[in-house]
């Protein structure tokens, strides 16, 4: 199911917790699993659950509770735009609209070439740098005004 690299990561996460608390690593393992697969198909969730010795539905509860897990396939680049109030006051909505226009899709949609998926996100804890995006759950982009957005889309190959 998972590459040996991912399995190594699993093992490193499990080691953070007391021996009888393997389930604690579920969030991290699901995140690694998603990184490898691009999203979280049910089989991946079940495999993580089995790896940690927890019921699959308990792992599914976790995967469906936290926003950054993707339970449906999505584009190569997931761009999450913060539109919460502090960002909105500094152009968060505008940035989102600009992105939508450029990509020709709305939120929760994927471009026809399968490259981009747009999501609306809640406060990312970087309101001073508004507007902010997160690409693929990993890299935070600050001050996303139109020129910056153009540059970002350029870089996403």
């Amino acid at each position: 199911m998972f590459s040996s690299e991912t399995l190594d990561k699993f093992a490193r996460e499990v080691a953070k917790y007391p021996a009888d608390q393997k389930q604690s690593a579920v969030m991290a393992c699901l995140a690694h699993a998603q990184e490898e697969k691009g999203w979280l198909p049910a089989e991946a969730i079940e495999a993580v659950a089995n790896y940690l010795g927890m019921p699959p539905i308990a792992a599914y509860e976790v995967a469906s509770f936290y926003n950054m897990y993707d339970l449906k396939p999505l584009g190569k680049y997931k761009i999450t735009v913060c539109t919460n109030l502090p960002c909105a006051l500094s152009g968060g909505y505008h940035a989102g609209e600009y992105l939508q226009q450029k990509l020709g899709i709305g939120y929760n949609e994927t471009t026809a070439d399968g490259k981009f998926t747009l999501k609306e996100g809640e406060c990312m804890g970087a309101c001073g740098d508004a507007p902010v995006f997160i690409v693929n759950n990993r890299s935070m982009c600050s001050h996303m005004h139109p020129e910056q957005i153009d540059k970002l889309l350029e870089e996403c190959k």
Binding site: P55, I57, A58, E61, S64, F65
Partner: peptide
């Protein structure tokens, strides 16, 4: 044995089995 869980959150919380 945990066969049912409450998935999702907020008002979208739903009781269900694994897939």
């Amino acid at each position: 044995v945990m066969e049912l869980g409450m998935a999702n959150r907020n008002m979208h919380s739903e009781i269900m089995t694994f897939v």
